[in-house]
Structures are given as structure tokens and as C-alpha cells.
Design a protein around this nucleic acid. Structure first.
Lengths: 203, 203
DNA sequence: AGTTGAAAATTTACATTGGAAACATGAGTG
DNA sequence: CACTCATGTTTCCAATGTAAATTTTCAACT
């Protein structure tokens, strides 16, 4: 399609842009085999380059994984905003974002874990940091829409964000690790979502 | 002590009981170098045996890590019950357990992550499962003490447990990954803990 | 144009890891 | 005492990430 401007040549000179190809291959491999079955050599092999080629673009494995995580956060932010209808009230919007958070984690378990693993990716990387901050800002803004703007609004706002984030992140993490496998699919999530409706009374 | 009957000999015949020694060495190494710097060979070297010796007791690395995780859950349960005073009311006891949960995770970040990692340890292992269930039961019991025993008490109880677990687990996870590093140490935790006091109004 | 230089990839080599197989040792039992 | 079997060791192997040296390719410049 429109990804490569000239689809005529079977293979570009060096590769075109290996950077994006490696990230996409990593994302695909992550989805197929999970975090454990992921290796630098295999990502490179899937793209068709030698296993040392990524070094030029990402330095080392951690750099490549960090780039994958950054792309993950961009998709994560999109998932958060997916069901966000402007006409809805604050509670409904928060509800939708929380569901988006958890759905994304459930549909991309390996990527989700990578995104939040300080061992596997570099949290100092500006690209990943910016993407993560943008994703967090969506949740924070919705949390802020529920907290009344009083005197100590700042502190309360921070608590509100942290609590909301802890709930959705904790639920997503536990579900992904298979710890919440009770009852039919989504029933638990629905129960949690119901609780969100009582949110304002909780503050 | 009763660990080694005769402390005179420099080294026992085969080793005494290597099983416990490997688990303890693994726990120590986990605390020193984290999850990344952990290897079967290094654990074995610390105990003073060859790197294939653990195979006889644990099968493979996953088996050893699972045993370490099981021991971690036993300590985790102890941490949950540490500040649990029988004289306190349900809310105070829940508060104390939640603090214990998060404190344990913060003081043993690598072990905490290992305990909940389906990649690194075997969730089917009976020993680990039992220890994890015992730890969870403490939280569940406290959550149940807050939920009124009505008609659909079962479902509500489950939701309550899940929500409580999600909060403490999510907070612990995010804090361990360095995502909540704002303000002075423990301030965030205190804020979260305050919210627990309003718990009954949330149900 | 032709040359030069840097970016991009490859080849080769190496240290580390987990695991498998064959072998050695020693304790406990008949 | 002899046998057996659990417990460890030695040796070997495949896979992984990384570094260094080398080659290829494109772009810019005179």
C-alpha cells in the first residue's frame, strides 16, 4: 500500500527503513510466541537481516524492545480513547477508558508486560516516556473530571489518578497472569466496571 | 541448630539438603542482583555445587524458580498478617493487610515479580499454588468482613476481593516499576491507605 | 563524471546461559 | 560384603546477546 513509496523494486538498497520493520516484526513475534519466545536473532531473521543489523538502529536488544514498547503505548492510548464518546458523562467516559485499558492488556498480554517492564526496556528513553505519558494523561484527565476542584485539589487529584491507575493496571496484570480465571469471560470485568459507576461516592 | 546435625565437618557427604540451600541462595541472589542477574549457574555456584546439580531436585530452572516463588508466598502471607491486630475493626485490619501487601512488594521487588510471573515459574505446581492460595485467603477474608452477607453475597464478595486485590497489586506493581515516583516516599501509599477508610461506602 | 566518506549490514568470534548424556561417588539396605 | 539408587560431576551442545573487523551501498561534494 502506501507504506513504501515505490513498491516496484523487490528489495530496496539496504533495506528501506529497517527500523520500522524490526519494530513491526517484534510486535508480531511478541503476539505469536509471547515474551519468552522473543529473541533479537529471531526478530532479525524474520525481517531477513543478520542478527547484528539491529545494533545500528537500536544499540542493543534493550533499545529495540524499548522502541517496541513505545509503539505499544501509542496503540494503548488509541485503545483508551477508542470507546470514548464526547457526548457521554464523566463516569461513562471513565468507564469506557478503563475497559479500553483492560481490553488492550488482555488482547496484547506480552506487549503489555513488556511496556511496563523496567528490566526489558529503558524507561529513560524519551520516545517511550512521551508515549507512556500521553497514555497516562488520558486516564489522569478522566480522573480529574471526577474530582471536585477544591483547595487541595492537587493532592486529591494525584490520589485519584493513582487509585484509578492501580485498579485497572492491577486487574489487567492479575488477569493476564491467569490469577482471576473464575467464571465466564468478562464477568469479572463487568463487575469491576459496575463499581466504577459508584466512583464519585468513593472520593 | 537442627539444620545440620554436626557443624564440625567442613562439608557434608553429598551436601546435606541441597534443596533448601538452593532456594535460600536463590532468594539471596534475587535480593542482591534482581531478576535479571539471576542464573541457574550462579545459584549453584553460590551453594558450591555444579550447575547441573539442581536438576535432580527441581528438574529445570523453572522448577527452582517455582520453589523460590512458593517460599516467597509464605513470607508474603506472613507480611500480610504482620500488622493484623485482632482488637482492630475490619477496616483497620484491611488497612493493615493492604499496607503489608505493598510493603512486602516494595521490599522484595524481584521476588514479588517472580511470584506472579507465569513465564518464570510453574503455576500448576501444588506447593506454589497452595502458598499463593493461603496468601490470597487472608485478603479475601478481610474483604468478606466488609461485604454485608446478603442474598447475592457470593458474587459481591468475589467482586470485592477482586477489586481489593487489583488495587494493592496494581499499586505495588506500578510502584516497583518506578511509575509512581512522585513526592516523598510513602506519601502516595498513605493517600491510598486513606481511601481504604471509606471502603464500605464504595460497595 | 568520479571520488570520498559515512551509514548500513555482514561475517566472524566470543562469553554466558540452560539443558542433555554419560560417568562417578557414596549412603543405605539386603 | 555387594548391590542399588539417589546425588553430583564432567563433558558437551545449541541458543543467545554482544563486540570487532570487514564489506556493501548510497549520498554528497569538487
Amino acid at each position: 500500500m502506501s507504506a513504501s513509496p515505490s513498491p516496484a523494486g523487490p528489495r530496496p538498497y539496504h533495506h528501506g527503513n529497517l527500523k520500522k520493520a524490526l519494530v513491526e516484526a517484534g510486535l508480531a513475534l511478541l503476539e505469536e510466541r509471547g515474551l519468552g519466545g522473543l529473541s533479537l536473532r529471531e526478530i532479525a531473521a524474520r525481517v531477513g537481516v543478520s542478527h547484528t543489523a539491529p545494533k545500528n538502529h537500536f544499540g542493543n536488544l534493550k533499545g529495540l524492545l524499548t522502541a517496541i514498547a513505545a509503539e505499544g503505548f501509542r496503540r494503548h492510548a488509541a485503545a483508551l480513547e477508542a470507546g470514548l464518546k464526547p457526548a457521554d458523562g464523566p463516569v461513562e467516559r471513565l468507564h469506557a477508558a478503563a475497559e479500553g485499558y483492560i481490553r488492550f492488556a488482555r488482547e496484547n498480554p506480552a506487549l503489555f508486560r513488556l511496556m511496563f517492564s523496567a528490566d526489558l526496556c529503558d524507561f529513560e528513553d524519551p520516545d517511550r516516556s512521551a508515549a507512556a505519558a500521553a497514555s497516562y494523561a488520558i486516564l489522569a484527565r478522566l480522573a480529574g473530571s471526577l474530582a471536585p476542584g477544591n483547595a487541595d485539589a492537587g493532592e486529591r487529584q494525584t490520589r485519584m489518578e493513582t487509585l484509578l491507575w492501580s485498579i485497572v493496571h492491577g486487574y489487567a496484570t492479575l488477569a493476564n497472569e491467569g490469577q482471576l480465571a473464575t467464571g465466564p469471560e468478562g464477568a469479572q470485568l463487568h463487575g469491576i466496571a459496575d463499581l466504577f459507576r459508584h466512583w464519585p461516592r468513593f472520593v
